[in-house]
């Protein structure tokens, strides 16, 4: 059984490592961040399987910490791309902002 579990972990590792291609190619930074997101949830699954496969109770705590902080990097990325680097992409009036961006020349973005 642990042979099967570690084999599944191997398969998951290879599958999820495929996401690195998107990190290299990804036209936009959001694609790269998504690849990291997929790798983190794949990592959680691998940690769980290896933890059960090796009878390592602690590995589940590691998976818990990774799951808890999975959204963390993406939030930092999203804040970085919004206005003035500290805003929220869902800031009030975001639709109005979006249309403003298309016709506004590439000037200095105003902070919300």
């Amino acid at each position: 059984m642990s042979e099967f579990l570690l084999g599944a972990a191997f398969f998951l590792l290879i599958t999820v490592a495929g996401g690195l291609v998107r990190v290299v190619l990804g036209p936009d930074q959001a694609d790269k961040m998504m690849a990291a997101q997929l790798l983190s949830s794949g990592g959680i699954a691998i940690l769980l399987i290896v933890g059960v496969g090796l009878q390592l109770e602690g590995a589940i705590d590691v998976a818990l910490v990774v799951a808890l902080l999975a959204a963390f990097a993406a939030v930092a990325f999203v804040k970085g791309t919004s206005q003035a680097g500290t805003g929220d992409p869902e800031a009030v009036g975001v639709d109005q902002l979006t249309t403003l961006r298309q016709d506004a020349p590439q000037g200095r973005p105003d902070s919300p």
Binding site: V75, V78, T81, S82, E90, V94, L97, T98
Partner: peptide, 9 residues
């Protein structure tokens, strides 16, 4: 969040 960020940009 990423979808909204993509939409905004």
């Amino acid at each position: 969040l990423i979808a909204r960020s993509v939409l905004r940009r």
